[in-house]
Simulated assay, not measured.
Amino acid sequence: MMKKIALITLLSLTAGICANAQDNSVKTPKGAVVKVVTSNPGDKIKPNDVITFDVVQKTEKDSVLFSSYMLGHPLKIQVQPCQNVGDLMDALPLLAAKDSACIKVPTDSVFKDHEEQRPAFLKKGSWLVFNVKIDKIQSLQQAIDEKNAVGEKMKTEETADRDKYIASHNLIVKTTPSGLKYVITQPSLKPKPLAGDTVLVNYIGRTTGDKVFDSSIQAEAQKAGLNQPGRNYEPLPVVVGTGSVIKGWDEGLLLLNEGSKAKLIIPSNLGYGPEGAGDAIAPYSTLVFDVELVKIKPIKHAMAPKPAAKKTTTATKKHTVAKKKS
């Protein structure tokens, strides 16, 4: 509730500021009107800089169209040549770190040559309003170095977290050269799939914190409180070994026999990597899947060529005969 009140207060303040955006304002070559509200010393934003900033995008009537505050984190972009006044790239070089500004953009310029994309609520002659607060300015190399440092830290934390999960669940795991860890929880003597076969898989996907984020089993999904409207709860068909699923699944399913069950502990480099996947899977997350290989639907595979028979030389034959006679 306090966050909502704070956001409403912020919008109210910036609305008042932008109402007078023409006062002491600068017009950019692309037609944006920029009023610097809070000015700080320091270098201005340059092309190719990477900036971290918060922004609230509104109509002239203060209807919020987008807010990084509502998103929960600031945006980070690299400054590029301006393609359209709506990308703000010709306005940003007027600002320094910690500056805040009100930027008004003419919608007629935004939708020039593609009027069919103009929403009905943005009339001709209207303006879009951007309330911008610059948090940080970095060179491209600084941004890359920072990202790499954060990535290395998260990798280290991931390894520690994975080891803790294995220890706390008393698992005795096997590890493949790629780093996939697995435990066969129900063995089977039936055949294994080959690359290109379709396998039907039941699964429960968890984080190392034991939070279920996905399942093909209705009872498990309901128990975890998952909201999956319209989902058919049935074994998932996967054409295995072809890259149609994350690498950890592709590799892990080929290790299983039809009818077997296993726990796959998949590091992020075999899963969703440094980007993660939505809100459920954070960057650099090890994932745990309880899988059952319900059925294999094999394709017709080419038969492996038989090894060529070795030719026996005449000298060898004579030697063999001689040995037998002796």
Rank of each mutant, 00 (worst) to 15 (best):
P305G: 00
D279M: 06
A280E: 11
A309R: 09
P283W: 10
T320M: 12
A282D: 09
Y284G: 06
K311Y: 03
M303V: 05
A304T: 10
A282S: 12
T313K: 10
H301V: 07
H301R: 01
A304P: 06
A322E: 12
Y284S: 05
I296F: 06
A304Q: 11
S285G: 05
A308I: 11
T314W: 06
T313F: 11
I299L: 04
A282G: 02
T313I: 07
L293I: 05
F289V: 00
Y284L: 09
T312F: 15
T314A: 15
T314N: 08
A308W: 07
L287T: 11
I296R: 03
T286S: 09
V291M: 09
H319L: 15
S285L: 05
T312H: 04
T313V: 07
Y284M: 12
K311C: 02
S285K: 12
I281L: 09
V294H: 09
E292A: 14
P283V: 00
I299K: 14
A304G: 04
K323P: 00
A280S: 13
D279S: 13
A282R: 09
I299Q: 15
T316P: 05
K323Y: 15
V288Q: 07
L293N: 01
A309E: 10
D279Q: 11
F289R: 08
K311P: 03
K297R: 12
K318L: 15
A309D: 06
P307G: 09
T313H: 11
V288F: 04
V321K: 13
P298Q: 06
A304M: 10
A280Y: 01
T286L: 06
T313W: 06
K310F: 10
P307H: 08
H319S: 14
T316R: 10
A315Q: 14
L287I: 11
A315H: 12
Y284I: 06
A315W: 09
H301L: 02
P305Y: 03
K318V: 13
